[in-house]
Amino acid sequence: MSFLMLLASAAAEPAAAVAHEAASGAGLPQMDASTFPSQIFWLIVTFGFLYLVMSSIVLPRLGGTLEERRDRIADDLDQAADFKQQAEDAEKSYNQALAEATAKARAIAADTREKLNAEIAEIAAEAEHKSAASLAAAEERIASMKADASKKVREAAIETTRAVVAALIDETPTPEAVSAAMPARANA
């Protein structure tokens, strides 16, 4: 019970103080017009000072710094764009150089291959020529040997024929007569 009373009195105390001040004629200090000139005067002095400092020193500095930073950032972005452009150009020229080098290498390779092919063909042709020549010589030799051999066979046949005729009729025909009597076919 006494606790509640205490709370009530605690709540009432500030209110009582207000009532007391009001009763003594003080009222709201805000309504005391005798303090107005002093407050207005010092407000104008201090606010005027603040305005002067802000408008002539602080705000131009801050604004200048902000502007400078904005310009600087814009410049840096431009520069970055430049660098990017340069990098792109460099990449392009690199690619171009690479393509040129590849083409050149391909041309050199093709050239070399052609040259080698030509050389190979030449060597092959020469070898063919040589082998053809030796083949022809060999064939010639074979043909002459063949002719030689058939001539000797004919001569032997003529001699044999003469000996056989001589034994049979005791008359030796001339080789010409035998040769004429022989079919020409044996000459082949």
Binding site: S38, T46, F47, L50, V58, G64
Partner: peptide
């Protein structure tokens, strides 16, 4: 006119001084 320097004027001066000191100091480096 009574333009006495009062506690109200004192706190205006303090407020303006603190603000001025802060901003002038903060903006000095740019």
């Amino acid at each position: 006119l009574d333009i006495s320097f009062t506690n109200s004027a004192l706190w205006m001066v303090i407020g303006v001084s603190v603000a001025t000191a802060f901003f002038v100091f903060a903006a000095r480096g740019r």
